[in-house]
Design a protein around this nucleic acid. Structure first.
Lengths: 192, 192, 192, 192
DNA sequence: GATGAATGAGCTTTCATTCAT
DNA sequence: CATGAATGAAAGCTCATTCAT
């Protein structure tokens, strides 16, 4: 019985987080009312407080969830140890909903204010660096790329380039352009 | 006489914009009270409304001002037509206060909501692309870099890389690391 | 179930409108604070906004309500087709609370500014003219009054006289004097 | 010298009062800003305070001035002791600017709040009653009208009718209709 | 679990008034 | 006499949060 309840609650939580994420992305955290979130999933304000302590908690949980979704997507794409697994990752990322893909950029706004968000993003950043650096080392071993540069620095450069493209998309860069820019960019950075 | 008045008012405007920019950056637009801005420069709330229509107007003007400051900084640094004028630009940028350097990232949050901000950032983006593409073409002519790639695409890649580094800095990347990453990254992207 | 809720809300609306009407009359619309209205019925400001969009909306609804209350009072009094049904109407009117009886005079202040108020009062004026003209025609048919004058013009004259007495009351004319002035006045105007 | 200054000041006062009256009538006392009044006569806010203690003082003085203007107009028209001197008065009144003619209706709004306004209007009311009652008595002596009714009561009825027509004009009654309604109405009330 | 009426602190904005020049 | 920059008290309104049902 508690299992069932728990599953139901988990489902409800997910629905709230998903809808909140969309709203936070599309109209901004501060422009989103608890009422808007509630209405968007057909419940009333009070219900949200059964699942989340307060609005900030909801933001943090949404941030955490989107970070996790993206990380899982990366891990899946990156399992092949070839260069184009990066391409696959980016294409996979492009398939994710915008409010998941871009959430971190908007969460950055809260970084100076909210320590929990800062930690989540920083930890995620570290994970990405580690993961990609490991892949790069494999590629170096297999001599797909040359081993002259520090793999961590290279990973950081790839991430920066990737993140930069996403910000450009927010300023109007098209998706196809982004994909091709990503592909040729990382090859230049890896001197392939 | 009116000239004097106008100078005084212009100065007052500048002080408000500068202080507002700092606060918008450090605690966020929505977390900044008109009262905070007023107090930070030793006046009262009412005074702000002598210079700006409302809070949103203040945000837009601050955004515009920071964009302009950055653009001027770029134009000055980029006047020499050698490759390391890019380095100079980035170093110059690092010397600017954080609330000017990073303002656009935080303004992105308002992009989905505020059309005026969107226009300002989009126009600035276009200017940068044009300016850098022009420099790149000069460098191609002088055969400092090879002329095989489209200069606009290359410019967009450089900008993306640059912007990505800034986002990484917000996630904890140090300033020295950023500078060296920028220098080596653009050389890789330009295949120099 | 929704019926019950709706009844409760309807009741709450009525209480707000009634108390707001009183305050608007006694201290003036612009001198009445939302806080005052709220406190007068033992709720807080926020509650008012659950029932009315804003202060102006509250004014318009109060105006509408008072117009309706007066109109109903007129219709009831006027059902007998004798001359003294006018007397009954005026006496009935005197029994209504001052803030209902005089509201229209105070609403006139907003007429130049607020189109909705203007429409409400203008429509009410037309209704009164029609209603009274119809009664006058009946009285003419029954030869209670002579049929030499235009019934609409006569109705307008009666209304003007009636309204004028109300303004005099605001300038200090006593209620008993008003009643007797009304009774003899309309008889003079109708040449009875 | 002081005479000249005083004349100048008197002129300035008049200009302010006149312009303030217009604005109070056309947009309402509470919707009129000191700034609006100042701008309307090409000075700055501060100047108003050289001539009037505060905004309320300005209202009271404006009210007083308009009352006086109307009273003088009445006295001039009424000097002939024939019945149609009433007609002349009304026609004269129609020639005055609306913001003088209607000011008292709008001042009524402040009656419940502002004792000074209340006194001014009450005193004016008394003056009118006395003046008209005196005229009526002359007319009774000359047997222009029958002497069966109390002249004061009759005066009050005439005033009420007159005031009522003005309120009707605010609700849309045309000027020509008003004049003819006035003329026939007072003849009915006086049984002439 | 869910509701939704009520709260009240806190925000942006307005504007009559002052006063150094 | 006149200015106009500055004030600050006070207003309307919002919305995250609570809690009796």
């Amino acid at each position: 019985m508690p299992k069932v309840v728990s599953e139901y609650k988990e489902l409800a939580r997910e629905r709230i987080l998903d809808s909140a994420s969309k709203l936070f992305y599309h109209v901004g955290y501060h422009n989103t009312r608890m009422d808007d979130i509630a209405k968007s999933i057909g419940v009333t304000k009070g219900t949200l407080y059964l699942y989340f302590k307060n609005k900030e908690d909801l933001l943090i949980m949404a941030c955490q969830r989107n970070v996790t979704l993206l990380e899982e997507s990366l891990k899946n794409a990156i399992k092949s140890d070839f260069l184009d697994s990066f391409d696959e990752f980016f294409e996979e990322e492009m398939r994710m909903p915008d409010y998941v893909r871009f959430h971190w950029i908007f969460s950055l706004t809260e970084v100076e204010t909210n320590n929990r968000i800062k930690e989540i993003l920083a930890e995620s950043y570290r994970k990405y660096v580690d993961l990609i650096a490991a892949v790069l080392e494999e590629l170096m071993e297999k001599q797909v790329i040359s081993a002259t540069v520090d793999s961590v620095l290279l990973a950081q450069m790839l991430i920066a380039f990737h993140n930069g493209i996403l910000t450009s998309m927010l300023q109007g860069l098209g998706q196809d352009e982004s994909v091709s820019m990503f592909k040729s960019g990382i090859r230049l950075l890896l001197s392939v």
